[in-house]
Amino acid sequence: MTSENIIQIENLTKNFGNKKVLKGISLNLKKGETLGLFGPNGAGKTTLLKILSTLSKPTSGTVKIAGFTPHEHEEELRRSIGIISHDSFIYNNLTAWENLLFYSKLYDVQDPIVRAERVLTEVGLFERKNDLARTFSRGMQQRLTIARALLHNPEIIFLDEPYTGLDQHATQLLSDLLKRLYEEKRTIILITHDLSIGYKVSNILSILVNGQIVFLEKCRNIKEDDFIKIYHEKVQNSKS
């Protein structure tokens, strides 16, 4: 591990009763890197993300994010991460604007009105800011989720299946946003089942199978077709 690593995971395990969901995960990410995390259902991807985001505690092992450990600096750690998942965390009976102002208070955002205006404009929802979130389509809800996750300007962003249920336009918008976040040197962990999209937006690829990282490689060292082939081989091997 080096001091440059913004995410440091060492020998992480997680058990649910007798079931071992994560079996000694070790991973380091530097600032500005985008890790694409792939794997079949039940591989432990979401569990890993839950531990990194302090939603769940590991059975053993250590995690350090932006210099903070979950047990000692939980609130600082949470302030440094933004999460976009298929769950929006958006209150349906509040307007887009009210949702953002609510979260800005929880995150102690400086100049919340300026910041909320900015993120809503970025995701193309400023004109709909006074509409109730429940009136939004799935794509618009996801854009509002992105605005919420970026509201406090986090340096680390976790995305858990963010493309689920999105139409082509919303998918493109999310991919463009990911590219912009990459250019802004944000550190990203992306979980997706779409190998092609994941390959295009990541610069490190990893495959998690049965709670273990079975593949970890820089994107530049492997072609997309080869990666897809390796992915299917690894998943197939785990079943046999």
Binding site: S53, R78, F89
Partner: peptide, 12 residues
């Protein structure tokens, strides 16, 4: 609904 409780728990 929408796992808003997780949104609260994840906030600092």
């Amino acid at each position: 609904e929408n796992s808003c409780i997780s949104g609260l728990i994840l906030s600092p």
